[in-house]
Design a protein around this nucleic acid. Structure first.
Lengths: 200, 200
DNA sequence: ATAATTAAGTGGTCTGACCACTTATAATAT
DNA sequence: ATATTATAAGTGGTCAGACCACTTAATTAT
């Protein structure tokens, strides 16, 4: 179907080639925009279209005055971006809130076997921190749990939803809710996780 | 860290706004490049950088002479692209696989109370369809379950991960795995969901 | 009324021009 | 000679304007 391949698409292929040939790794510098335009005999704007596209994906990083660098792909970039658009079509707050809850359960499940006594204590400290607002508590609490879960991708997805929900709705939970989770984490009773949120 | 936000990033935000306000759906036309440039008082090239980026993602479609159109997000576009660039980063892979499993559990949990006998039967049909490869089975199976879960957002996120995993690794499960899930869905024993994948 | 022609609109691409910033080089002061 | 400073070169960020190819709407000729 693509009767005519766009120039920036070719640039992408060319760049893959360059990366492969020169065995470039994350952190390495890519050829400059002007060099690429010159070498491929195309306009710089076309090169930029390609670069901006994969920059948005999180594949490269640009530093003004220095150059363009390959970077470690961070999948959350993509997810964040897509979420931002997909949310528009199916703009159901309900879905976001629901998804957020599911991810919070996931976080607990991932963390439950990775938390030692010190970790559990730090959780308690957050729960009992009187300086935090309800929203801040929720935020800190789960951010902390996610950190033990060791899945940055899930954390970033949750982060997005959490930020979104903050801007839309103020969903607060009583302190019992957090204590209950702390208890589950302590006793490591996985199966109790699914009982959370049930009365929402 | 992003001390200065790039113009094309602003354009993306603006476009999300426009889509939201005008309630645009897949198939609908977006404002033209020249119009956007004029309205936002920026150069057309900056608008194009933004458009080309999300075009690459498969979020929009452009037809020369006609315009730019919103389209249903097809994650395989992204996946294809990433596969070409991402050198099998182990940790990224691990996180995506793990996150995918969690989302599959979520799908089951969301669907469990929404599936009637007919739904359960349709699941059985997929499991016993001999025409499907292992990968296809997994794909269809969970896509189906997600459809009952009624959370399109979670489905889309899973979809991305599933496509990614397909392009990287062939993670297959025995048929028992799916029968086990079908059984859980039938008996509606939520707590058994957490035992899934445990031997992986 | 119908068909052919024209004009207007839209994406695709290139060129050339600045700006802001970083790094390497050259000039200067010590 | 060395250290400091000033300059130049390189790089990404952005814009304006120009064509081209293509589609659609408007106009004109039949």
């Amino acid at each position: 179907m693509p009767t005519t391949v766009k120039v920036y698409q070719q640039v992408l292929k060319e760049m893959q080639q360059i990366i492969k040939e020169k065995e470039l790794e994350p952190g390495d510098r890519l050829p400059s925009e002007r060099y690429l335009a010159d070498k491929l005999k195309i306009g710089r704007s076309s090169v930029r279209e390609a670069l901006r596209a994969i920059e948005l994906l999180g594949l490269i990083e640009t530093k003004q005055g220095e150059g363009t660098f390959l970077r470690d792909y961070q999948s959350y970039h993509t997810v964040e971006l897509l979420a931002g658009f997909v949310l528009q079509d199916h703009n159901t707050q309900r879905e976001i809130m629901e998804a957020k809850k599911m991810l919070e359960k996931n976080a607990i499940e991932l963390a439950i076997d990775k938390m030692d006594d010190a970790a559990l204590e730090s959780i308690e400290l957050i729960i009992n921190d009187d300086n935090l607002t309800h929203t801040q508590l929720h935020d800190e609490f789960f951010a902390h749990i996610f950190s033990y879960g060791q899945n940055f991708l899930l954390y970033k997805i949750w982060r997005f939803m959490q930020d979104f929900s903050k801007s839309v709705k103020n969903n607060t939970y009583g302190i019992d809710f957090y204590n209950q989770i702390a208890e589950i984490l302590k006793t490591k009773k996985h199966h109790q996780i699914y009982t959370l949120y049930s009365e929402q």
